[in-house]
Design a protein around this nucleic acid. Sequence first.
DNA 1: CGTATTGTTCACCTTAAGGTGAACAATACC
DNA 2: GGTATTGTTCACCTTAAGGTGAACAATACG
Lengths: 109, 109
Amino acid sequence: MNNTAQLDRSFDALAHPARRTIVARLARGPATVGEASRGLSLSKPAVTKHLKVLEQTGLIRRTVVGREHRLELRPAPLAEIESWIERHRTLWEAKFDAVERHLADKRKE
Amino acid sequence: MNNTAQLDRSFDALAHPARRTIVARLARGPATVGEASRGLSLSKPAVTKHLKVLEQTGLIRRTVVGREHRLELRPAPLAEIESWIERHRTLWEAKFDAVERHLADKRKE
DNA sequence: CGTATTGTTCACCTTAAGGTGAACAATACC
DNA sequence: GGTATTGTTCACCTTAAGGTGAACAATACG
């Protein structure tokens, strides 16, 4: 459940703006390579590499149909990241609230 | 609201297991550099560099008290990441559900 | 068949990330 | 004052990430 290596890859995959753009587009629905990378001013090899990262991370899936590659988002890694963050953020908030309460108690004295 | 550069830095900061470990510890409450990095088998310069990344990303804050540096988590970047992911994941789920409903409708025909 | 389209692979380059040991700085302690 | 502790800075090394143009592969289209 605490798969460090997978989280490494997921965070890393989303650290690049081009890859986040692609993910954001695929969140709107499947697309081909050309569609998913339109407007990113990147060479084709660069796009290919970014897609490979996303694919190996498990963030996207590819189906070759004719000469096009149809890409679709796989949200499981997103959910994993969200869960990791949510866990630690709320833990921190709990601690913080405890301190707040403690200070409030002291003010009452 | 859509601060790409900040998201770049935040995702990147959390992509390294050592930095995630430090963040996880600080979620339990403040700690010194030594405490926060205990058990990570890393040289001191390496720890210093990781802390610098976390600090510049805004994920931690440092208060020098005597010869110790007291570190505390700043959860805002975590919240930003969580929000980005949540937005796109739910968008995808909405699309997915729409397809599911469409298929269900077709099965009824 | 010839050619346009979609995308990958190849060979390469440059930069930055992550790591180290050694030296330094500042505070604490006896 | 001398020394231990806490942490950073310095100088360096190695590897991987990200980028490119050129060539290739496979399908589509006239």
